[in-house]
């Protein structure tokens, strides 16, 4: 164990913070989705780091499942985005208030 695990965890925390801020700041639905991917990657990095610190393969197996679920999530999310943009080509996240009560 050469580089201490704490460094990786701090890096992952910073990446998660940037992703969360981007999710709040941006209006474009696609870019917001990319920021969600950033946060997912931060958590994956945390999982791998804890797997190394604890000598446990379970963390890496969790990242495997995170990858699969993230792929499914991207496919469904982009399908929804395509459906939205087909109806309203100029839509940003603020224009999507059709379900508003």
């Amino acid at each position: 164990m050469t580089v201490p695990g704490a460094w990786y965890l701090v890096l992952a925390a910073v990446l998660f913070g940037i992703g969360a801020t981007g999710l709040l700041v941006r209006r474009n639905v696609l870019v917001m989705f990319m920021c969600v991917e950033l946060m997912l990657n931060a958590v994956s990095l945390t999982f791998v780091t804890f797997a190394r610190m604890l000598g446990d393969i379970g963390g890496q197996a969790s990242v495997f499942f995170v990858l699969v679920v993230a792929a499914a999530e991207v496919v469904v999310g982009l399908g929804i985005i395509v459906a939205i943009f087909r109806r309203r080509p100029e839509a940003t996240a603020d224009d999507l208030h059709m379900l508003k009560g």
């Binding site: 695990g5 704490a6 965890l9 701090v10 925390a13 998660f16 913070g17 804890f50 797997a51 190394r52 610190m53 604890l54 000598g55 446990d56 393969i57 379970g58 890496q60 197996a61």
Partner: peptide, 21 residues
């Protein structure tokens, strides 16, 4: 996140529960 991670140890618990890395 950073403060929480400074409070305790980074990784606690049993080692190699799900399998040895």
């Amino acid at each position: 996140i950073l403060i929480l991670s400074r409070v305790g140890n980074w990784a606690t618990g049993q080692h190699s529960v799900a399998g040895d890395l």
